[in-house]
Design a protein around this nucleic acid. Structure first.
Length: 295
DNA sequence: ACATAGACCTGTTGGC
DNA sequence: TGCCAACAGGTCTATG
């Protein structure tokens, strides 16, 4: 499911309710998601305050008083929703767009400045997970080892990409999905960025770098387009396909701005291009692109 | 080192 | 309408 913009949208939605709130109770409705919950997970959190919410790549970080952090990944289908206590019936929690509770796996009961609030993690496919990790050892968390730069900051540049690409022949699509090269991109935004930059997903990445190791024009465009598409998607509240809804139940709307993703057979939106969006499979995953203007 | 295929799990969609 | 295959926003592992 969620790529960086969706996780960032979730973080921003949860922060006003979770930051500075006290965790009264954590309820696990099953012993595991993709992985078992850590031993003593609920007990370690109950009674503590939440300091802040953060994010690294597609991981949501819940920094808890006392120096520990919940590392949560939403997998393909995970979502959080917020339910406020009904004023007329204390102890009951409601939300106008409540989902089927079948896949409500974790419930956080909190008390914040505005009163009690319930945060629910729902995940039909259970590819998500939650781990507990010491704050000061976060860089040692296995999935964070060797993680590439965030596409939201200045660390992602054409020069950086050239340095990573120059010796490789891997198709561009696969390289951009590699979290060790860039953190947080997934299938949607990789397809969208390659289309914006006019680059074929099958290009061997080394071909985007000149003999002196400098990025060619296409790679410079790509670096800019990755940053732009991610920034625009965050601003739009992410993309809502099947599972991603914002924590208040509303939908992100970046899916309306897709140029190629999930648009097989439609005409290419590039001005002056007469091509049609096609679909190929690379490493088992769909790539949407226009073979006319992506070369 | 690198590339692909398979595994994990449930739900939805589209073709017949 | 029903059935079934294909596919879905992600990673991790095994296998060439």
């Amino acid at each position: 499911m969620p790529e960086l913009p969706e996780v960032e949208t979730v973080r921003r939605g949860l922060a006003p309710f979770m930051e500075k709130a006290r965790i009264d109770r954590v309820t696990l409705n099953r012993p595991d998601l993709r992985f078992p919950f850590p031993e003593g997970f609920a007990e370690a959190l109950q009674g503590r305050r939440i300091d802040a919410l953060g994010r690294r790549a597609k991981y949501l970080l819940i920094h808890v008083e006392g120096g520990s952090t919940v590392i949560a990944h939403l997998g393909m289908s995970g979502s959080f929703r917020i339910e406020a206590e009904a004023s007329e019936t204390p102890g009951e929690f409601h939300h106008p767009r409540s989902k089927d509770a079948t896949h409500d796996h974790v419930v956080f009961d909190l008390t914040g400045e505005a009163g009690p609030v319930r945060i629910i993690y729902n995940d039909p496919r259970r590819f998500g997970f939650m781990h507990l990790w010491s704050d000061h050892l976060l860089d040692d968390y296995p999935a964070f080892q060797g993680l590439g730069p965030e596409p939201t900051g200045n660390l992602l540049s054409a020069d950086y990409l050239a340095s990573r690409f120059k010796t490789r022949k891997q198709p561009l699509k696969g390289a951009l999905l590699d979290q060790k090269i860039i953190a947080g991109l997934g299938n949607i935004y990789v397809c969208e960025a390659m289309h914006r930059a006019g680059l074929s997903p099958e290009t061997p990445v080394g071909a985007l770098v000149d003999a002196a190791g400098r990025p060619k024009a296409g790679l410079i465009r790509l670096s800019d387009d990755i940053r732009a598409v991610i920034a625009e998607a965050i601003e739009a509240g992410g993309s809502s396909l099947r599972d991603h809804i914002q924590t208040d139940g509303s939908l992100g709307y970046f899916q309306h701005r897709f140029r190629v993703y999930d648009r097989e057979g439609q005409s290419c939106p590039t001005p002056g291009c007469a091509g049609t969006v096609g679909r190929i499979v690379q490493a088992g995953r769909s790539t949407f692109f226009c073979s006319q203007c992506q070369t």
